[in-house]
Design a protein around this nucleic acid. Structure first.
Lengths: 347, 347
DNA sequence: TTCTCTACTGTGAACGCTCACAGAAGCATG
DNA sequence: CATGCTTCTGTGAGCGTTCACAGTAGAGAA
């Protein structure tokens, strides 16, 4: 009555081989095959070889559903993107990050589930999915602080690693971030060293780590260099190109004698360049412009942007490493990675 | 010996409720709960309500591993990206596509697994994963033709929907594409209608659908309009900005009297604009420039680019719809969606 | 010899679900 | 009153794996 060994239906996919087929082929029991599959401890070399040969011969691939059912692990992780919907997708940094994480996970044979939770409804749905244990951990990319997702996932006990230092409760939340403050310091120091004395800044939103830390670095360095703290030189932005344009306009009005601008993102810096060009200021002769991110836009802009490189490849690799460690039971920790000044023509 | 009902460990996650817990809570059997979960056929209204209440009360979420183990379906699909590694991630079109697919799938509560197969090794690994039945279908984004992945997935009988018409064997492969040829036609017609008579083109690679079809549309329209077919007006590109710059340089050399260029991608069009600006040609007064894609770059470029909009939102929605239909047993089909001319300042 | 220890192997029993089937109840038809 | 149909419900089996446990064989020690 039951189907014959290695049966296949006439049309369609053949029934994939099970651990049982492999065991029969190798002349051992299911248990031994399972042991080979899971590290090969307490397996004789002969059995080991027989099983491996049988796996090759049958084309066996483990059924992850069956495995997950019993182990309680899913061997997959979520890449969860919350908040500002399409914003992230336009951000070149995000691409690099997603790509890096996918790669790092693939190396460990772990699939990545991409989740986008723009609306509250999507957030609820994704949260339910995650809390149901369908993934072992979450890589969280959330721009703004006070994200309710963080709190909920923490409460549910789901291993979590965030990109960028969460501004609120950081306990029990692992994170990997670039050294925003030090990057800002380096840029402002560089502008100062090249002779600039009226150094302005265009900031990011005050509820993002980058908005806070880069501004802090700017302030510290001015003080270090003995320059006066002039609030009219500090203009807020929201990371968008348009806000960079507007900020530069405001700046030229308030402080026409400005000779350098440290802009908290490359995208905004492009807007600043546009406004400066329209106002007839030459870059870098009249005004030096420094960006942040080293996005592709930095190379494409005219003139090419001197900027601070964020080590996205290292960030993604570290996020994955940390998440897997957390899944393995390790405690939460924070890692801050160094940035690097990239000199181009704008400063 | 066994754990008490709804047991929870002191620390860590509590044991999630099973279908059994729900059944007990609702005073019905597992079977009835299962029926409610799967459409509610042959369930009395009273039982229906009791089960739904019990689900809410217990916070039950179906264990997809257990379900998949028996149904043989995984209720997840792969988004498979093959070939040119980071190229795609720099392409804004790709972002929109990925986002659209994630969204469309999320609406149906189906997770998307992101797979990147740049190297042959990654291709092999991902293929093994897919063929093992870990996903129900594949959304394939592959730029170049003759992709071995297509053949292998077809042979394995995995439901497959490609983005863009596969140039090779199209039988049994579903695809969704923009109407490249008609888009090109519309642009060239528009250039002609605005009085241009020396209309050049910068093409995409000849092994991509966009490279072939957009060129064909260009040729057809010139003939229609009674303009001579002048091969010196056709310059090859590879979709990159740099290749656009180079192509425009070559073009100005070969045909200095050119008064319009239809460029097969916005990115290349930006390169063309750069070269034209350096050569002192005004756009659109001296030379009109038309792009293709309507990427964010089209708005950002100076002057803003007249271009052909690809309906990425509809493409992604249709890809998902078609894939699910194929998983449901429907035959492969091809869908071609209309493009749209977007008038800005460059033409 | 006998015992213990180690290295290895096989065997049920789960994991949480769906599916097929059997059966019960209600109602109309012969 | 039996028969059939429809609607609904519960039950046992089994999906493919891992895990705990029981067992075997061989080596070395007493």
């Amino acid at each position: 009555m039951s189907r014959s060994s290695t049966s296949r239906s006439a049309e369609g996919r053949r029934r994939p081989p099970t651990i049982h087929d492999v065991a029969r082929e190798a002349g051992v029991s299911r248990g031994t095959v399972s042991r080979v599959l899971n590290g090969g401890h307490y397996v004789s070399p002969a059995a080991q070889d027989a099983v491996n040969a049988a796996i090759r011969k049958t084309g066996y691939v483990v059924n992850r559903h069956a495995r997950s059912l019993i182990t309680g692990r899913s061997d997959s992780v979520a890449f969860l993107l919350t908040e500002p919907q399409e914003r992230f997708f336009e951000d070149p940094n995000f691409n690099v990050l997603l790509r890096g994480c996918t790669q790092a996970l693939a190396d460990r044979d772990i699939p990545l589930l991409l989740m986008i939770a723009g609306t509250a409804d999507e957030r609820r749905r994704n949260l339910r999915y995650i809390e149901a244990g369908h993934v072992d951990g979450v890589l969280l990319v959330s721009s703004h602080s006070g994200d309710p997702v963080v709190t909920q996932l923490r409460r549910a006990g789901v291993p979590l690693v965030a990109c960028g230092k969460p501004l609120g409760q950081t306990a029990k939340v692992g994170y990997v971030a670039a050294d925003d403050r030090d990057g800002a310091r380096e840029m402002v120091r560089y502008l100062y060293a090249s002779g600039r004395r009226r150094i302005a800044t265009v900031t990011g939103p005050p509820d993002t780590p980058g908005g806070v830390e880069r501004l802090a670095g700017y302030r510290e360095t001015l003080a270090e260099c003995g320059l006066p703290a002039d609030e009219s030189l500090i203009v807020p932005g929201d990371y968008s190109r348009a806000s960079g344009e507007a900020a530069a306009g405001l700046l030229l009005e308030r402080a026409p004698d400005v000779d350098a601008v440290f802009v908290a993102s490359d995208l905004m810096a492009q807007g600043v360049l546009d406004t400066l060009a329209r106002a007839g200021r030459r870059v870098p002769e009249d005004v030096a412009v420094g960006g942040f991110d080293d996005s592709p836009a930095a190379v494409a802009s005219r003139p090419p942007l001197t900027t601070i490189r964020q080590p996205w490849d290292r960030i993604s690799a570290e996020m994955v490493r940390m998440l897997l460690a957390r899944i393995g039971g390790e405690e939460a920790a924070g890692v801050i990675l160094p940035t690097e000044l990239v000199r181009r023509e704008s400063a």
